[in-house]
Write a protein that binds this DNA or RNA. Sequence first.
RNA 1: GGAGCCGUAGAUCAAUUGGUUAGAUCGCAUCCCUGUCACGGAUGAGGUUGCGGGUUCGAGUCCCGUCGGCUCCG
Length: 385
Amino acid sequence: MIEFRILKQSKKSGARIGILKTTHGEIETPSLVPVATRAAIKTLTARETERTKSRILIANTFHLHLRPGEHIIKHAGGLHPFMRWNHPLMTDSGGFQVFSLGFGKDMGVGKLLKIFPEGNGGKNKETVRTHHQPKEMKIADEGVWFRSPIDGRKLFLGPKESIKIQESLGADIMFAFDECTPPLATRPYIERSLARTHAWAKICLDAQKTKQALFGIVQGSHFKDLREKSAKFIGGLGFPGFGIGGDLGSSKEDMLKILDWTMPHLAEEKPRHLLGIGYLQDMEAIIKTGIDLFDCTVPTHYARRGIAFTALGKLNLNRTFFLKDKKPLDKKCSCETCAEYTRDYICHLMRAGEITAMRLLTFHNLFYFNTFVEGIRDKIKRGKI
RNA sequence: GGAGCCGUAGAUCAAUUGGUUAGAUCGCAUCCCUGUCACGGAUGAGGUUGCGGGUUCGAGUCCCGUCGGCUCCG
């Protein structure tokens, strides 16, 4: 069970301040949802994650099903006690892995299409047509046959299976099983996929036995009518909240357009989660469309590549330049990393391959992102956006 | 004192019987990463082949000298 209360609706935009209540406490929205795919924010403990101002995390059904298996987590009493996290949790359905381990892997693309200049090896000419299948999986109306990336054994995941697993995991919020279509798919492929995602949404609702909140996911790629169709359909099924999935086009403008097409069809009083998006420079814009929650791997993933986010932009701590830099990562940041450590040391650790570097950067980036969202909430409260 | 082996990019090593512009890996530099992939991807810089001479149309490769390192024998 969740309860969502909107405390303030902006008069200047779709932005709003809300409180999302769950049985594991409440969070203020808009909020970033850091990604704990395998029931861990990589490099940090739950206690440490809490000190980065994070109050809700998202784990992944597909990855936890593979390892350790949902029965282990159920036996431990669910994800919350298992990972020692006493705040709200979400689980992604595994639908995204249909894409990321399927066409995404085959074609070497993300869900946001990168535009290549003309003549660049015809990279953009490749398309996914109606009856195409990814190399290592089979997508059917009932669900998806995968091969385990761990040992190669055959696995099946469909809407019923996803819900059953997510119920064993016991997060406060679950997501419906969907297909994130590849950005290079043809319209007929997307239409067919959308019908499937919609059918799966209904099956998920029917399959659910627990009181966890189940969010439906809007798809529809970059087509206006398909996005509207999906938003109306998913919006009409009685879900207590919604996810918006990508392909979200090939630019920030595309993404905002897609959100604008979608949002009017989703009940205002219900929370909206933008799946997998959250560059700092996009946050304010997506929040202004009416997004309440968004998960993103960027703060944690980039940290492990040596990137720190600061008021002056991204810093690449791999660069030898920083070996003699005695400043903290960000002079105004009040996180534990910035309070105790300076760039020279973190640069050294990064270059030496010491995992402590990733830890210090992960801590900082999460704190920085959360502080950044806090700043946007503050702007909404003061009526500035 | 004598004999032998070795010397190629910052490091470790490749390079047909002498034959185009001397390669690879790591490291270095710049950039990339959006419902996760820590140690990944793209691009780039870097060489008087220890030094000097010779043979040859042509030498990292063959010859002589020299310097340095290693091994063995006295």
